[in-house]
Design a protein around this nucleic acid. Structure first.
Lengths: 225, 225
DNA sequence: CAGTGGTCTAGACCACTCG
DNA sequence: GAGTGGTCTAGACCACTGG
């Protein structure tokens, strides 16, 4: 027993076996380093990892304790739509249905903090020619480089390469298909669609884009714990 | 400039400014440590963090390069339902609607790898007395401690404290309300519901439980990037 | 096989925060 | 104020893998 992953495993074992009960404090790093016969940095690495996964809670001076009611954390991959399609072994294409400048509605203004006129795009993404995702996007030209021809490269893909590593919020929901979605995706109104909504911001917190993706019926977002 | 977070910020800046273009290799840790005037371990920490977020790709011998088409990673919190409800400032309660031993249907057998008879539970979770989540759960008694009275403590909550830090898979989808869900939640058939499906496994990979949570209309799963 | 990242060590200082 | 985790350093060895 010496690597930090071994130490993490031993700590987990003690939690499972109730050697360290839920909600209880565990020994300090120094003490564990002595017991495990390793450097404190190694213990630190193991405990920090478990804290990042919601198993432990750590505070200076207060020490480390096992979380009483764990809030598990899972990691999601947010790929570009073209990659999603190609990962399924299908061919991606897209069609721009709407592109103009317009005033954002109230809901978009609230989420982005932008009230000026924005570029609005409706794009249908296809997998092997069949509807895959219906995208409704608002772009803030004020904080973007010169825009390309979105018939050539989808806004979805252009943004990840032109705006590297921005921050923002994501939300997932289930919604019945609206008029535009039903028409574009060839489904009945009200059919349950998986919807992803995202606001992307630059380093100063100014909104770059707001996008709403409605996925075709049957779509599942997966991950492991 | 000296902490690992400062170094991470500087690396990100260079990527955004295209000093290091998308897809290109960046200097080795040794070289960067000299340039930044810090220890190699500090550079390592910064680069490892960016790799875990999908910005960099690292391989021994091959070195570190900027990912050409970034796959952003987001972290989700998976709380216990009672915590979710209470975080909204509402009061949680639950009702067990069905509890018996039965043969799992094909879909559950495929996902869990279990074909023997399992304990089946249908539970309705309420927030301030109104339907919040409809839970359909399969439990494998063979790998569980003695079961409690699920009218007292919901299976959802009992499991997180009795089966600490298990692994498994999660999937999210949008589905129209089925017969059981429509009746239990008081909504019309076919209404779009946000559905969470989870398989939990013990250390040996044996399925402990399969659960399907149908959230009441309006539910949104949120996170930040 | 050799270069690069992955990890460990022993020691040190610091920042936060509980009491 | 003092105890605990957070981080940094300088050096070392190791594991993986590309050429």
């Amino acid at each position: 027993m010496s690597g930090w992953e071994d130490i993490r495993a031993e700590v987990l074992r003690r939690i499972r076996m109730r050697v360290w009960p839920l909600g209880a404090a565990i020994p300090g790093e120094e003490e564990l380093a002595v017991e495990f016969g390793c450097a404190r940095a190694t213990v630190n690495r193991a405990l920090r990892d478990l804290a990042s996964k919601g198993v432990l809670e750590r505070r200076r001076k207060a020490g480390t304790r096992v979380v009483a009611i764990p809030v598990r954390k899972a990691t999601l991959d947010i790929p570009v739509i073209r990659q999603q399609v190609e990962a399924l072994g299908r061919r991606h294409s897209h069609r721009v249905l709407v592109q103009d400048m317009r005033q954002p509605p109230g809901a978009i203004r609230d989420q982005t903090g932008l009230s000026e006129r924005l570029l609005y795009l409706e794009t249908l993404h296809l997998a092997d020619g069949r509807p895959f995702v219906f995208e409704m996007r608002w772009l803030n030209p004020a904080v973007l480089p010169p825009l390309p021809d979105f018939a050539e490269i989808s806004a979805n893909e252009w943004l990840v390469t032109s705006v590297t590593y921005a921050t923002g919020e994501i939300a997932f929901a289930a919604e019945g298909a609206g008029t535009a979605e039903a028409a574009a995706m060839g489904v009945a109104m009200g059919v349950a669609l998986f919807v992803t909504e995202r606001v992307t911001r630059d380093a100063e917190g100014v909104a770059i884009t707001h996008v709403r993706l409605a996925h075709a019926p049957g779509y599942r977002l997966r991950t492991v714990m």
